[in-house]
Protein backbone atom coordinates (compact mmCIF):
# COMPACT_ATOMS: atom_id res chain seq x y z
CA UNK A 1 0.00 0.00 0.00
CA UNK A 2 1.25 3.49 -0.81
CA UNK A 3 2.31 5.39 2.31
CA UNK A 4 0.25 8.54 1.50
CA UNK A 5 -2.90 6.45 1.08
CA UNK A 6 -2.49 4.75 4.45
CA UNK A 7 -1.57 8.05 6.10
CA UNK A 8 -4.77 9.66 4.78
CA UNK A 9 -6.82 6.77 6.16
CA UNK A 10 -5.28 6.82 9.66
CA UNK A 11 -8.27 8.61 11.32
CA UNK A 12 -10.73 5.95 10.12
CA UNK A 13 -8.37 3.00 10.63
CA UNK A 14 -7.25 3.97 14.17
CA UNK A 15 -10.31 5.72 15.55
CA UNK A 16 -13.26 4.69 13.37
CA UNK A 17 -13.83 8.21 12.09
CA UNK A 18 -16.60 8.22 9.46
CA UNK A 19 -18.81 10.95 8.05
CA UNK A 20 -22.36 12.19 8.41
CA UNK A 21 -24.24 14.00 5.68
CA UNK A 22 -25.27 17.45 6.89
CA UNK A 23 -28.17 17.39 4.41
CA UNK A 24 -29.93 14.04 5.08
CA UNK A 25 -28.17 12.88 8.28
CA UNK A 26 -27.06 9.54 6.86
CA UNK A 27 -23.80 8.21 8.30
CA UNK A 28 -20.99 6.49 6.41
CA UNK A 29 -18.02 4.32 7.28
CA UNK A 30 -15.44 4.45 5.77
CA UNK A 31 -15.86 8.20 5.34
CA UNK A 32 -17.25 9.66 2.12
CA UNK A 33 -16.51 13.08 0.64
CA UNK A 34 -19.97 13.33 -0.94
CA UNK A 35 -23.27 11.72 0.17
CA UNK A 36 -24.28 9.27 -2.60
CA UNK A 37 -27.95 10.10 -1.95
CA UNK A 38 -27.80 13.89 -1.74
CA UNK A 39 -24.98 14.37 -4.28
CA UNK A 40 -24.11 18.05 -4.73
CA UNK A 41 -26.50 19.10 -1.96
CA UNK A 42 -24.06 17.45 0.45
CA UNK A 43 -20.97 19.26 -0.85
CA UNK A 44 -19.30 21.06 2.05
CA UNK A 45 -21.80 19.57 4.51
CA UNK A 46 -20.11 16.21 5.26
CA UNK A 47 -19.12 16.19 8.95
CA UNK A 48 -16.64 13.86 10.67
CA UNK A 49 -18.22 11.48 13.19
CA UNK A 50 -16.46 9.06 15.54
CA UNK A 51 -18.04 5.62 15.86
CA UNK A 52 -17.63 3.49 19.00
CA UNK A 53 -17.52 0.36 16.85
CA UNK A 54 -19.48 -1.88 19.21
CA UNK A 55 -21.93 -4.04 17.34
CA UNK A 56 -22.76 -7.50 16.11
CA UNK A 57 -21.75 -9.93 13.41
CA UNK A 58 -24.01 -9.74 10.35
CA UNK A 59 -22.19 -12.47 8.42
CA UNK A 60 -18.75 -14.03 8.32
CA UNK A 61 -16.36 -16.25 6.42
CA UNK A 62 -13.55 -18.51 7.64
CA UNK A 63 -10.38 -17.96 5.61
CA UNK A 64 -8.25 -21.08 5.08
CA UNK A 65 -6.26 -19.98 2.01
CA UNK A 66 -4.97 -16.51 2.75
CA UNK A 67 -2.91 -13.91 0.94
CA UNK A 68 0.80 -14.24 1.77
CA UNK A 69 0.71 -11.50 4.42
CA UNK A 70 -1.92 -13.39 6.42
CA UNK A 71 -0.65 -16.96 6.06
CA UNK A 72 0.50 -16.98 9.71
CA UNK A 73 -3.05 -16.45 10.90
CA UNK A 74 -5.08 -19.11 9.06
CA UNK A 75 -7.71 -20.18 9.74
CA UNK A 76 -9.08 -16.73 10.62
CA UNK A 77 -12.44 -15.02 10.60
CA UNK A 78 -13.46 -12.11 8.36
CA UNK A 79 -16.84 -10.63 9.19
CA UNK A 80 -19.22 -7.82 8.38
CA UNK A 81 -20.05 -5.98 11.59
CA UNK A 82 -23.06 -3.74 12.06
CA UNK A 83 -22.21 -0.99 14.55
CA UNK A 84 -24.78 0.14 17.12
CA UNK A 85 -24.56 3.47 15.28
CA UNK A 86 -26.03 1.82 12.17
CA UNK A 87 -23.10 1.63 9.76
CA UNK A 88 -21.33 -1.56 8.69
CA UNK A 89 -17.63 -2.40 8.44
CA UNK A 90 -15.65 -5.41 7.29
CA UNK A 91 -12.94 -6.64 9.59
CA UNK A 92 -11.12 -9.58 11.12
CA UNK A 93 -12.45 -11.15 14.32
CA UNK A 94 -9.65 -12.07 16.74
CA UNK A 95 -9.48 -13.74 20.17
CA UNK A 96 -12.18 -16.12 18.92
CA UNK A 97 -11.92 -19.66 17.55
CA UNK A 98 -13.46 -20.17 14.06
CA UNK A 99 -15.92 -22.70 15.49
CA UNK A 100 -17.17 -20.17 18.07
CA UNK A 101 -18.14 -17.31 15.75
CA UNK A 102 -21.85 -16.90 14.98
CA UNK A 103 -24.20 -14.41 13.35
CA UNK A 104 -25.47 -11.98 15.98
CA UNK A 105 -22.36 -12.34 18.17
CA UNK A 106 -21.49 -9.14 20.04
CA UNK A 107 -18.10 -7.63 19.23
CA UNK A 108 -16.06 -4.54 20.03
CA UNK A 109 -13.08 -2.98 18.27
CA UNK A 110 -9.44 -3.86 19.02
CA UNK A 111 -6.22 -2.20 17.83
CA UNK A 112 -3.97 -4.56 15.89
CA UNK A 113 -1.33 -4.82 13.18
CA UNK A 114 -3.07 -5.06 9.81
CA UNK A 115 -0.02 -5.52 7.60
CA UNK A 116 3.45 -4.35 6.74
CA UNK A 117 5.47 -3.53 3.63
CA UNK A 118 7.96 -6.35 4.14
CA UNK A 119 10.59 -6.47 6.88
CA UNK A 120 11.94 -2.98 6.18
CA UNK A 121 8.71 -1.18 5.25
CA UNK A 122 6.00 0.68 7.12
CA UNK A 123 3.79 -1.23 9.56
CA UNK A 124 0.06 -0.64 9.11
CA UNK A 125 -2.16 -0.59 12.19
CA UNK A 126 -5.92 -0.45 12.43
CA UNK A 127 -9.12 -1.95 13.77
CA UNK A 128 -10.09 -5.57 14.15
CA UNK A 129 -12.93 -6.89 16.30
CA UNK A 130 -13.02 -9.16 19.34
CA UNK A 131 -15.89 -10.80 21.24
CA UNK A 132 -17.50 -8.31 23.66
Amino acid sequence: MAIPRFWREIPSRYNLIGTECGNCGKRYFPPRIICPECHRKSVGKMKDVKFQGKGEVVTYSIIHHAPKAYEMQVPYIIAIIEFEEGVRATGQIIDCEPEDVEVGMRVEPAFRKIGEDGKSGVIYYGYKFKPA
Partner: peptide, 16 residues
Protein backbone atom coordinates in the same frame (compact mmCIF):
# COMPACT_ATOMS: atom_id res chain seq x y z
CA UNK B 1 1.81 -12.16 21.61
CA UNK B 2 -0.46 -13.01 18.69
CA UNK B 3 0.92 -12.62 15.15
CA UNK B 4 -0.82 -9.25 14.84
CA UNK B 5 0.37 -7.90 18.20
CA UNK B 6 3.44 -5.85 19.06
CA UNK B 7 4.48 -3.20 21.58
CA UNK B 8 2.38 -0.55 19.84
CA UNK B 9 -0.85 -2.58 19.82
CA UNK B 10 -0.30 -3.60 23.47
CA UNK B 11 0.39 0.03 24.42
CA UNK B 12 -2.74 1.26 22.63
CA UNK B 13 -4.96 -1.40 24.23
CA UNK B 14 -3.62 -0.52 27.72
CA UNK B 15 -3.95 3.23 27.04
CA UNK B 16 -7.55 2.86 25.86
Amino acid sequence: PGPDEDVITIAVEAAR
